[in-house]
Design a protein around this nucleic acid. Structure first.
Lengths: 342, 342
DNA sequence: GAATCGATTGGAACCGCTTCCAATCGCTCC
DNA sequence: GGAGCGATTGGAAGCGGTTCCAATCGATTC
């Protein structure tokens, strides 16, 4: 029952340490009888190799980091990231990698470099496009530490990435609103520092343009991906632009806040104002009214990211790849059919 | 710029490896000059010790596991657990421990034991009361692996725990409803296999009893802590027990589902039916109407758990401790003032 | 000035595994 | 029968730390 080490396994199986190590690592040059004996001993004594020793000798850790520079509180509580992490976790578990979740504040950048780059305790890093600074990505690249981006970042085409087609998503959301007859459509999007938000805004613009609906820049509101932001923005817009009959919200959380503000203001959704969200988080079905939104395969995104980085670490994949997942429009009730629109 | 190891530090500082190690670990018996020299070299070359080597030699990993046997999807998407994890993360980060998040399905129990108990790669484990099986806890105990429970589990008083006073929380929620004049109060609680859910139900019962309101067992509905469950239960109860004028929901997610079902059924909250939740998750402020709920310091719970296990690992704390955090009633609008109640 | 003692210091063993390299083994082939 | 060769195997040298132990040092005490 006590922990045994590789030497004991070797002894009990009447082979040398080297042989045990080879079967442990699936290396060739082990006879069938030897392998069999070793495997039996391992099973019998419930042997598990010491991972610290393994890492030390092999100079790798089978551990990947998932790195975020945002406020952990925001990250963890937004439902979106957690699903993403989940995808990463599951894939890594399946491939027997472990994942280390890291939050680093911007002041800690230096600390991080020490940790990741010098202690070199991570085989690879998954990062979010938003946190990719020249500095960080540059370091990663020159140190040849495998990295994969979730999202897009201009100028980092040299790092593989997974993303959802944000442009297509918002395009179809807004087109849906237009088809329902809306002309005065507001957009509530995230920080334009993020490529993602830019793309979602661009999709909105293009959808209007393609439909020949004049674009009113004043209808665009920029905020954060939170209920609070959606709520507060809506409240102030309601006063300034009462003519808006439909809102494209760049996230479900924003949309939820917006719904709350609309209700508070005595407006009915979708009769008075239509709202469409983005993400299709699990709660979207239970907002009042249930939210029409753009579904994106969030945890799949994480899964792909994990798979890509592992392939990269193992050398299975060396080319740069940019994967773009397709989002879907999910129609529920927050846009109605043909509401007050024009 | 290249990684250097302890030997090089020693050489550059004109001391031996042992001395370097001592300053690294804050051991005594290092002269001030030696320490100074070592520190300078460390700074200059940006030295960071190799954690695998450290773990191997020191036989500990400075890593704690946080273990959940539930479906990862549920865990990660329920907002509650993520806040909990956040508390754990933050505290561990502060104390320079790292945390390994683990999801193990019940069939993987054995696998887990191998991993944790034999590879012995974790210095301690935080677990949720719900997953504490005799087996698991027993193993942990006999192996003397420090463990801390989040929540309570009957029969495991030998493991330290952190919890919120669930009884007090539901008691005050239900008392609030009674004060508003409600007599027919429904309860929507989680699985009675969980101590937590039992306590929340017990608080409900006691509140009714203390107020002299007769208890109707048929008003109690048992489900899961999800929007879907809250929604579905509410829908069916509405048909069977239309006389209920107020609901105590044992979680905000449930309450959100319940609100959605009420709205769908054409009932107004709080005018027709009052609803109170539990947890005060960040979205509770933005439901329609904003949710009156019981606030519990979730991430603080995680933080304490982390602190307790670290103290345990370091030997600073050896006594068993059961910490009970106090919840608060947060009044918003879902209960109104004096509604249709009696 | 020698003995004593505590504070420093350096040396070396060891933690458990990977991996290079040389040795061995069992065949085939001439 | 011996050379040649590929498949196995075992030995040993690390990987980069921690820690025990003995040696050294400097100051104090008699």
């Amino acid at each position: 029952m006590n922990k045994i080490n590789i030497d004991q396994v070797a002894r009990y199986a009447f082979v040398s340490r080297s042989v045990v190590s080879r079967v442990l690592n699936n290396h060739p040059h082990v006879s069938d009888v030897a392998r069999e004996r070793v495997l039996n001993v391992i099973k019998k004594y419930n042997y598990q190799r010491n991972s610290a020793a393994r890492s030390l000798a092999a100079k790798n850790t089978r551990e990947i980091g998932i790195l975020s520079t945002r406020n952990p509180n925001d990250v963890m509580s937004n439902g979106f990231s957690t699903l993403l992490y989940l995808g990463v976790f599951e894939e890594c578990l399946a491939q027997r990698y472990s994942v280390r979740q890291m939050f680093i504040s911007t002041e800690m950048k230096e600390e991080f470099q020490k940790f990741i780059l010098n202690e070199h305790t991570l085989d690879g890093v998954i990062l979010f496009a938003e946190e990719v600074t020249d500095l960080l990505a540059g370091e990663l690249l020159t140190r040849e530490i495998p990295a994969v981006l979730i999202g897009h970042a201009p100028g980092f085409s040299s790092i593989s990435s997974v993303d959802v087609d944000n442009f297509a998503g918002s395009y179809s959301a807004v087109t849906h609103l237009i088809r329902l007859g809306h002309r005065n459509i507001g957009a509530m999007v995230g920080s334009q520092l993020l490529q993602e938000s830019q793309d979602r805004l661009a999709g909105y613009r293009k959808a209007l343009e393609d439909a020949g609906v004049p674009l009113n820049e004043a209808f665009v509101s920029i905020g954060g991906y939170t209920q609070k932001s959606g709520h507060d923005k809506m409240l102030s817009r309601l006063r300034r632009q009462p003519e808006i009959t439909a809102w494209f919200c760049a996230s479900d959380t924003m949309a939820m806040g917006a719904l709350s503000a609309l209700c508070k203001s005595g407006l009915r959704v979708p009769d008075d104002v239509a709202v469409v969200g983005f993400d299709d988080l699990s709660f979207a079905r239970y907002t009042i009214p249930p939210l029409t939104t753009i579904r994106q395969p969030i945890s799949q995104k994480g899964q792909y990211a994990a798979r890509m980085i592992i392939d990269r670490i193992s050398g299975k994949q060396t080319d740069i790849e940019h994967r773009n997942l397709k989002p879907d429009l999910v129609i529920r009730e927050s846009c109605g059919h043909r509401s007050r629109a024009r």
